Simulated assay, not measured.
Amino acid sequence: MQLVRIGDKVINPERIYRMVDRMLELRSQGLSQQEVAEILGVDRTLISRLESVGEMRKGKRIALVGFPVANGPELTAMAAAEGVDFILLMSDQERHEFARSQNGVELLNQVMRLIARARACDAVIFIGSDERLKMVEALVGPHVIGIEIGRSPMKEDVYVSPEKIRNLIRSLKD
């Protein structure tokens, strides 16, 4: 268990995560914000604000981006069949080849174009390391759904469940 000290307070993040999980469970069962607040012993506005922080826009434009992914072709075929608008999945080797194949200016321009394409989508599913996820959230914005597959620096490709990604895509489209 990792505790966090803030001034003279000691905070247990796991307790916060459990509380948020319980809140979402109760809300998804159809309880009102007020009912959940009373059950959990918190202010209703806390429920509202937490929901606002996590709210994803449902829409037709979805991007799927990730690296280092071991089963990129499999995920690409599935995502294309599900109607995903922008797909960019790379293995570790493909990622390094992409970077080496261009000079600095070309690489920067290409990365900026890719970021612009992702930002144009209503939701971006990003598969990657903990540090890359933070960077993508900062660059692309709050409509990123992160799937962390390891800690940076990652040196090996990771198999990602196509069914998990398919279910996520379908939940965004519904």
Rank of each mutant, 00 (worst) to 15 (best):
A123Q: 04
E74H: 14
L64T: 04
V69Q: 00
R95S: 05
A79N: 03
V136D: 01
K164L: 12
V160R: 04
Q110E: 13
A99E: 11
N12K: 06
K155E: 15
E137A: 06
L89F: 10
V84Y: 06
S91I: 10
E82D: 12
Q33I: 05
I87S: 00
N109T: 10
M112P: 02
A123P: 00
R100G: 05
K9F: 15
H143I: 09
L64R: 03
S161V: 04
Q33E: 06
K60P: 01
A77N: 14
V105S: 05
A99M: 14
S32G: 02
V140T: 13
K164P: 00
R18F: 12
S48N: 11
L40V: 10
N71K: 08
C121K: 00
V136Y: 03
E97D: 15
E163A: 15
G7L: 08
I47Q: 01
V4Y: 07
R100H: 14
L114S: 08
G59C: 04
E137I: 06
I16K: 05
N103E: 12
Q2V: 07
K164V: 08
S28M: 07
R117D: 10
V36Q: 04
Q29F: 00
G66S: 05
G141Y: 10
T76Y: 13
Q110P: 00
I11E: 10
N103G: 12
A63H: 01
E148D: 14
R170N: 08
R22D: 06
I165C: 03
G30C: 10
A123W: 02
K164E: 11
R170W: 08
R113L: 12
S129H: 08
H143L: 06
V111M: 03
K58V: 04
R166V: 03
V140A: 09
H96N: 11
I16C: 03
S32R: 01
A37H: 06
S48V: 11
F98W: 11
M135I: 09
G7F: 06
N109Q: 14
L107E: 08
L172H: 01
A37S: 12
M78Y: 15
V111F: 02
R49A: 04
A81Y: 15
V160Q: 03
T76F: 14
I47C: 01
V158F: 11
Y17V: 05
R100T: 15
V160N: 03
E35D: 12
I165R: 01
L88Y: 03
Q93R: 14
E51F: 12
N167E: 03
E25T: 09
V42S: 01
